[in-house]
C-alpha cells in the first residue's frame, strides 16, 4: 500500500468539493473493495475521501410504490430491511448470497455498484491487463479464463462484473442517482456500467467528480421473484452464473418477465432478448429454454469458460421452472 491522504466529508457538498479539489481522489465507503485493491497496489489514490458519515443510509418509500435506497446503506441493513424483504425479496437474496457477514456489515450499496472485477490477471500487477494498464494487453485471454464473461467481451477484455446486487437491480429497472457540483442526474442501472470495448479501464458512466447518492427502485414487477447464484462452493465465492428473475404467469402464459444474469457478462446483464422471447409465450420448459438460447445465441467463449453457456441456459430454465 502507498501513502495517501485521508479526508472526511461531513456532508454531500463537502464530499463533492473534496473530490474536485484533491487530485487523484477516491470516495471511501465500506472500503471492502477499494482498500483491498490499494493493498494490492492496484488502486493508487493520492487522497481518499471518507463519505461514511454522509446522511445517505435511509430506505425511503416513494409515493409511486417504489423505494429510494441511500447509497451508504450497508449491505446487511439492505438485506434485513422489512420493505426490501417483503417487496423486493430478489434484492435481499442477492445481497445475502454475496461475500460474508463481516463484509456485508461494511459494504455499501454505492460501493457495490463500483466493485471491480476479480479477474486474476487484473489483481496481479505482474500480468498484462488492459483494464489496469490500458494498452498493456490481456493475459486472461489465453490464460485462466474460467471465471470470464461469455457475453459482452471484447478483444481487449473479458472480465466479469462481480456484483450480485447489481444483477437484481438490473432486473428491477433500478435508477442510479448521481450528484456533482453541476447538479443531479439519474441513470438507469443498465446504462451505468459500460461494455469494455477498446477502453475496459472505463467501467461506468460515473464522472470523476460525481457521487452516487441513491439507488431508486420502481414499484416491484408483478408475480414472483428470485435470485439464484451458482458457484464453486456453498458460500464466499463469486458467481459462475447467477439469475435474477421476476415472473408472472396468467392462464399459462407469461404476462410479465424480468431476467438478468450475473457471472456471464462484462457487466450486470439484463437479458432483454430472453424477455422478448418469453413475453406472451406459454410458461413451459420449452419456452424457457428457447428464451435462454436466444439470449445466449451471441455468447462467445474462451478456452475455460465454455461451460458457462450451458450452465446459464440450465440455470435460467431451472429458475423459471421453479417459479412457474
Amino acid at each position: 500500500m502507498r501513502t495517501f491522504s485521508y479526508v472526511r466529508a461531513d456532508d454531500v457538498d463537502a464530499a463533492l468539493r473534496a473530490i474536485t479539489d484533491e487530485p487523484n481522489a477516491k470516495f471511501l465507503g465500506g472500503g471492502t473493495n477499494l482498500v483491498d485493491l490499494m493493498r494490492e497496489d492496484i488502486e493508487r489514490p493520492d487522497t481518499v475521501v471518507d463519505i461514511t458519515r454522509l446522511p445517505l443510509a435511509e430506505v425511503e418509500e416513494l409515493p409511486d410504490g417504489g423505494v429510494r435506497i441511500g447509497a451508504l446503506l450497508r449491505n446487511s441493513h439492505l438485506a434485513a430491511h422489512p420493505v426490501i424483504r417483503s417487496r423486493y425479496p430478489m434484492v435481499a437474496q442477492a445481497v445475502l448470497s454475496g461475500a460474508s457477514g463481516q463484509l456485508r456489515n461494511m459494504a455499501t450499496v454505492g460501493g457495490n455498484l463500483m466493485q471491480r472485477t476479480r479477474c486474476l490477471y487484473f489483481y496481479d500487477d505482474a500480468a498484462a491487463c488492459n483494464k489496469r494498464e490500458p494498452g498493456s494487453g490481456c493475459a486472461a485471454i489465453g490464460g485462466f479464463s474460467r471465471s470470464h464473461a461469455v457475453l459482452g467481451a471484447s478483444a481487449s477484455c473479458a472480465a466479469t462484473h462481480p456484483s450480485d446486487l447489481c444483477v437484481a437491480l438490473a432486473a428491477l429497472d433500478a435508477i442510479v442517482e448521481l450528484r456533482s457540483s453541476r447538479g443531479t442526474r439519474r441513470v438507469p442501472l443498465v446504462d451505468f456500467h459500460r461494455m469494455p470495448g477498446d477502453t475496459p479501464e472505463i467501467e461506468t458512466v460515473l464522472a470523476d467528480d460525481e457521487l452516487i447518492t441513491a439507488v431508486e427502485l420502481p414499484p416491484p414487477p408483478s408475480g414472483v421473484s428470485r435470485y439464484r447464484k451458482v458457484r464453486d462452493r456453498a458460500s464466499y465465492a463469486f458467481a459462475l452464473v447467477s439469475v435474477a428473475a421476476a415472473l408472472d404467469v396468467q392462464d399459462g402464459v407469461v404476462s410479465s418477465i424480468r431476467l438478468a444474469l450475473g457471472g456471464v457478462g462484462t457487466k450486470p446483464w439484463r437479458a432483454y432478448q430472453a424477455e422478448r422471447a418469453l413475453l406472451g409465450a406459454p410458461a413451459t420448459e420449452e419456452s424457457f429454454r428457447a428464451a435462454a438460447r436466444a439470449e445466449l445465441a451471441d455468447a462467445v467463449s474462451l478456452p475455460h469458460n465454455e461451460f458457462k453457456i450451458r450452465l446459464a441456459e440450465s440455470t435460467i430454465v431451472a429458475v423459471l421452472r421453479g417459479m412457474s
Partner: peptide, 12 residues
C-alpha cells in the same frame, strides 16, 4: 495466479 484465500477455494 490465485495466491489468496479468496481465489484458492478451501471449503467454507
Amino acid at each position: 495466479m490465485n495466491p489468496s484465500l479468496a481465489e484458492y477455494h478451501l471449503p467454507v
